[in-house]
Amino acid sequence: MTAAPGYAPRRTLPLRVEIIRQFKRRRTMVMFGLLLALPWILVIAFQFGPQSSGPQQASLRISDLATESGLNFAAFALSVSATFLLVVAVALFCGDTVASEANWSSLRYLLAAPIPRDRLLRQKLVVALGYSAAAVICLPLMALLAGTLAFGWNDIQVPGTGETIPAFDVLPRFGIVIGYALVSQLVVAALAFFISTVTDSPLGAVGGAVGLWIVCNILQAVEALGVLREFLPTFWNNAWVDALAPELDWSGMAKGASVSITYAAILIAVAFRRFRRKDVVS
């Protein structure tokens, strides 16, 4: 008899337990509240803004078309939040998860329970990714709801060309958009998660991930880097716009997914490897 009766490593830290542990946190609540409220705030903002007299040829930017339909509005909401808000949300859920346990000193008791280290990371990663995915999904869905209630269920008007695609044709495309947004945020999640395993400061993990993200965004603006920019994790961040074009173009999203998965796989592997060997002193 080596272990206590009833103990089995693969039963430790069930996902349900980890979900509850994270859900009751204030930052989880606040972040979801913000994501769910943002579409309504935008709706109010558009209602207050000066009404333009019909769409003009010159103004086919995604923001000008936002009030054309619920789908247009959802695309707009995603475009304004994907660059930063969702990044912060994902970094928060994934960067906070291990570092905050270390910060609370609860990490050592979990490890001594004992929850095998790989399993602890795996379960925490699954839950953190789950929360991140929920964040990425809930924003466009709420925007779709808010936009449909506010602006009606019309066909989507494509930014740039002003072409119109029937609403029901574009719904599956919208699924692609959300799916790609999830995949492209994977690199943020992995980066935040990796930093989370090496630091005891939750803010450091979240801030570190967001900070590196910002640096990548800045580097992306340096055209002199040429083709190298394609390998920056942020470069293909907006490739989901291609899914709303009249002709679906996968190439950008394929590259973006490739870059994202590459970084994510390596970062997560390094996180596991480091955490296994790490002396937990927090």
Partner: peptide, 13 residues
């Protein structure tokens, strides 16, 4: 790290 026998250990450190 994570040895099953630790389940027989209660700790406060």
């Amino acid at each position: 790290p994570g040895a099953p026998v630790l389940s027989r250990l209660g700790s406060f450190v």
